[in-house]
Design a protein around this nucleic acid. Structure first.
Lengths: 162, 162
DNA sequence: GGGGTGAGTAAAGCACCTTTACTCGCCCCG
DNA sequence: CGGGGCGAGTAAAGGTGCTTTACTCACCCC
């Protein structure tokens, strides 16, 4: 990592793309998590939200969830057990049989998805205002190009970073 | 979190700013770490590079390092002990006396900083090419505005995210 | 010279994940 | 129709990296 030359009144590195990405992501995620917790979901971390996303619609088996989250199936199974105890998912017999169990979202989890969606939309709208952009379309487009350039093909599962 | 409407051949969410930030950061950091390891520094995680950054120049005490990294002083002390054993930092008596010990970088760490700086510059140059941008100035500017809008004042320490 | 302050250290605890090793339902081929 | 084996799921132990709690000790300062 390299510290770039100072420019004007810039205090910290503040020119390094990698640092900027990290700080931006961290700030946005932290604020998102804070607001979701405040809206009635304390103790639900972003990873839980990712799991809800992965289980939307028809649901999935624990192993499918593991693959989508990029963790081992044991970790996914533990996550499912915890979410089941808290009433966010239910396990039903899988139509394909075998040892499979289908994990589906409860209404409670669906409500959380709605709240989280509203929170993140509000947050991004505020950011658009504060940065003076009409929307954040330019940033989105640039980031999309970046992600596409680095992962050409399928984007990676979103996991905790270092 | 909300899944956005499909557009063309887009497969995943791919419109959510938060997701894009996370994926971008994760991809860049992972590739950076991979290349640095390949360049002769296996087992040095990005956090170690952050510590080197924080210790550049006059060095710092363990407690100062802890504050800059956003961890407890115990965690920083443990990190220093590990880096000392591996020859990347040295501990010298602190001019201000007291129980303080000044942690400074060795030549080995300075060389790592040079390598890491070169690696990240190359990586960003390749990204600029692949995304078709002359440089990534637009993205940098947008991200700088975003970070500034969310942290007005001092940027946060860069820590593992969720 | 005795208490306060703050750096550093030690030990235990904890969150979260992986690795290793198994159980067991079903397919399928002989 | 029976047994091998594939793959989902589970169980238990291990490991990493951090925090919390609790202390030691050097110096300042009245």
């Amino acid at each position: 990592m390299v510290r770039v030359e100072r420019e004007g009144t810039d205090r910290p590195p503040a020119g390094e793309l990698t640092f900027l990405l990290g700080m931006g992501f961290q700030l946005v995620v932290a604020e998102f998590d804070r607001r979701v917790a405040e809206a009635g979901y304390p103790g639900l971390r972003p990873l839980h939200g990712m799991a809800f996303q992965a289980l939307r619609g028809p649901g999935a088996t624990s192993s499918e969830l593991a693959e989508r989250l990029g963790v081992t199936k044991q970790a996914a199974g533990q996550l499912v057990k915890e979410l089941e105890q808290r009433g966010y998912v239910a396990r039903r017999p899988h139509p394909a049989g075998g040892r499979r169990r289908l994990v589906v979202l409860t209404d409670s989890a669906e409500r959380h998805l709605e709240v989280a969606g509203r929170v993140i939309a509000e947050l991004e709208a505020e950011l658009a205002l504060r940065t003076g952009q009409a929307d954040l379309g330019v940033l989105r487009a640039e980031l999309t190009a970046l992600v596409h350039a680095m992962s050409d093909g399928s984007p990676p599962p979103l996991r905790p970073v270092w």
